[in-house]
Amino acid sequence: MRNDTRKLFNGFKQRIAQLNGIDNASEEFAVDPEVQQKLEKRTQQSSEFLNKIGFEFVDAQEGEKVGVGVSGTTASTTDTTTKEREAADISDLSKYGYRCEQTNYDTSIRYAKLDAWRHKKNFQTILRDALIRQKALDRIMIGLNGTSRAATSNRTANPLLQDVNKGWLQKYREDAPERVMNEGTKTPGKILLDSSGSGDYKNVDALVYDAVETLIDPVYADSTDLVVLCGRGLLFDKYFPIVNDADKNSEKVAGQLLLATKSIGELPAYRIPYFPKGAMLITSFSNLAIYIQNGTARRHIIDNPKRDRIEDFQSANESFVIERYDAGCLLENIVYK
């Protein structure tokens, strides 16, 4: 690391120490709760997807879900001459609550990259945002691909962070299998889309229509907040033929408009990075959340000359939460013939 870069990096550590009311950020410290919430807000805002879902700070490591923005019905009538009016509890009282587990977000940045940033006036902001951006991407990856929590995770064997924590899709598989469709009646082990009529559905729109009708509670099935979350593959399979066959100018324009307003089964479709292939999650953004336990954030910033890099060790207890399982469904093993 160059001398002028080191001065900037030391200034970054001093600012971190000042914000958290400590003497030295090069020793492990508990992140100030107010600073933690600000950092988590920045992490959320760094991703369009994370910015749409819920971030909740909870005091207990485990407990009942908060369920902000997701509720059941409350309207009713009561003949008060015969009985008292009863208030409806709109929280999710299922046996499935949340449990926050420690997740480490440990990041390193090479000296050479820091040296390349040294001439920029906003050096500290660039360094902070680089650390935040990777944390946001990791959270999305865990939320969509996490299937378990190993005592010691293995990034080589699980490149999509499958063993760091249980994500939203896994929560559906384990806690609400009745709201998961992963095979068809004609093709065991997969849901076959075949326009000739020999598959389980002729197209992906029909699949989504059926899933909303049969797997989502009627209270939420007609919600205007429902969206389809999927990966690049399913959107490509649906929309590429439209563009590929649009030879006339009018058809090309129609294809471009369709691509600009993507939908599946009349629901808005969003492509999410790292989403598993051949799968879709139908729900509202407010039904997905990340819970973070207050007071569990820890941090340790190291200058490691043995590896020619700086290392930022961060951790906090967190949980990936489905607020209400009846307000969504998971579709998997979708293939086109």
Rank of each mutant, 00 (worst) to 15 (best):
D237N: 10
Y220F: 13
D237I: 01
T261V: 10
Y274K: 11
G231C: 10
L258P: 02
R232P: 01
A260R: 05
D245R: 00
D247C: 08
P241H: 10
G255I: 02
Y270S: 06
D225E: 13
Q256I: 12
L257S: 11
F236A: 11
S263F: 04
P218F: 13
R271F: 04
D245V: 00
A260E: 09
P218H: 15
A246N: 05
S250D: 09
S263V: 05
V227S: 05
E213S: 15
G231M: 10
R271S: 14
P273M: 13
P273E: 12
R271E: 15
Y239I: 05
K262P: 11
R232M: 11
T214I: 02
D245P: 00
V253H: 08
N249M: 05
Q256M: 11
Y220A: 06
C230E: 07
A269D: 00
D222L: 06
T224R: 04
I242D: 09
K248N: 08
K252R: 14
L259M: 14
C230G: 13
K238P: 00
V243H: 01
N249G: 04
I264Y: 04
I216F: 09
A254T: 07
Y270H: 12
P273L: 12
V243G: 02
D245T: 01
I264M: 15
A269R: 00
L215G: 01
I272F: 06
A246G: 10
S263W: 05
D247V: 13
I216A: 07
I242P: 12
T224I: 03
E251R: 05
R271L: 11
Y239W: 02
P241R: 13
A260C: 01
I242Q: 14
V219N: 08
K252I: 15
Y239Q: 06
K238N: 01
S263T: 13
K238T: 01
Y239R: 04
R271T: 10
L215N: 05
V219Y: 07
A269P: 00
V227M: 04
L267G: 02
V228I: 03
E266Y: 01
A221L: 07
D237H: 06
S263E: 15
S250K: 12
P241E: 11
F240H: 14
A254Y: 03
T214L: 10
D247L: 12
P241L: 04
P268M: 06
A269Q: 00
D225I: 05
V228Q: 00
Y274L: 12
I272T: 03
I216D: 03
S250A: 13
D222I: 08
I264R: 01
A269H: 00
P273Q: 11
P218W: 12
K248Q: 09
N244H: 07
A269M: 00
L215R: 04
R232D: 11
R271H: 02
T261W: 12
A221I: 08
V227N: 09
K248S: 14
D222M: 04
L215D: 07
A254N: 09
C230S: 15
F240P: 03
N244T: 07
V227E: 03
T224C: 01
D225L: 06
F236V: 02
D217R: 01
I264P: 00
T261D: 13
V243Q: 02
D222C: 01
D245N: 08
D247M: 07
V253C: 02
E213W: 10
K248T: 15
